[in-house]
Design a protein around this nucleic acid. Sequence first.
DNA 1: ATGCCCCTTGTACGTCGTACAGTTGTCGGA
DNA 2: TCCGACAACTGTACGACGTACAAGGGGCAT
Lengths: 219, 219
Amino acid sequence: MAKRNVRLTRDAIVECAMTLADAEGLEAVTIRRLAQENGVTPMAMYWHFNDKDALLDGLADHLISSVKLPAPGSGPWDVQLREILEAFVVAVRPHPALAGLILRRILIADAGLELAERVLALLGEAGFTAEKTAEVGTFLMCSIITLAAADPATGPHVEGRDADELHRRKRAHLETLSPARYPNVVAAAPALLNCRGQDDYFALNLDLLVQGVRGIRRS
Amino acid sequence: MAKRNVRLTRDAIVECAMTLADAEGLEAVTIRRLAQENGVTPMAMYWHFNDKDALLDGLADHLISSVKLPAPGSGPWDVQLREILEAFVVAVRPHPALAGLILRRILIADAGLELAERVLALLGEAGFTAEKTAEVGTFLMCSIITLAAADPATGPHVEGRDADELHRRKRAHLETLSPARYPNVVAAAPALLNCRGQDDYFALNLDLLVQGVRGIRRS
DNA sequence: ATGCCCCTTGTACGTCGTACAGTTGTCGGA
DNA sequence: TCCGACAACTGTACGACGTACAAGGGGCAT
């Protein structure tokens, strides 16, 4: 993996960290591992990033700025809101291991502020007060991240486990449940284990969020 | 902190870990720290738990089983659903640092299965197919956990930072924003920094979720 | 060639989870 | 009264982690 022909770059490190996180999870993203991956000493990282948190912030910022916001059209607010939220999930979905890093950077990264600005504007247009706008907007951002985060079987933002093994254990456990005691869980068991990652799941719950915003508009 | 008069117990350890997490965050919950807190050698923990993950699972299970489900009344499904979701948030809210641990244990812990069963049953009653029931139910559980997790300024499930310092930095950053470029963000800035932890926030977004479910019922 | 500055290396420390083996306290049957 | 057996705990050690600190090299303008 040593590619020590050129100098190291912030962006190169971030890129490397992203593919690493996608392939092996966030817990594989280690200063030492990143250094080794680039044929370099661990301490070399610290020239490009103050500390590991700064590196993770870099990852988050990179992910946030990959959101392709639709042009600020003139359609009804709920349609526009849905488009923006969808653009957000679409960008984050390919990197579920990193989803948890995003939240704390949304109001810091430029792209995140742009995103927040658009969402808050639409909520204002929908008739929410400034305070409710903040509350709903915050929750929407959190929900989208949740939506895009990893499979519940592996657990979002909980790393350090063998995903396959956990998934198998969960399946085995669900199969031992008494259908008399948990009829609905047993009936939904295959879907519960499977539903994440399906386009259906995202579309349906994006609708849920937008319809929810519409539903609480007057109150 | 050494209270070595009685033998150690799984429950005692879990209890200790919970107060520790509430006071100093999940990153303070360490095998060594827990041992020291109980006046015992680190390795003593491994008699009661196979490894640290088992300990965290114990924490999650304890938290899940603290949910006080309302009696299965006979009101309309959406009212009952809201009551259940509210009971969930109420139980988890006091322990935001642990919220992230819950998800992967919901379909394993008995109390979690009970919770899932009730939610899925109500969704079935609302007219969802088995598959959509699973999708919506999964998302609802995730959202409630998200809702109950820590302040976005400190970042849910992201530990290892000084919360106060981060909050101050965020506030400072928001105050430097150009109101021309981000009018809505600037207008909502105080609320954005503050809204979490307010009862208002939880009530409003619980409504959002329930109304959302109602909104997507027929489709 | 020389000096400077950007980038990298080398070494070391403290913390973490935990494998492995040994030690104690307690208690029921002889 | 003794005695093993088993439950609960101790002691030591290892490898991985983040990172402080100081020293080194290598390309560029002079």
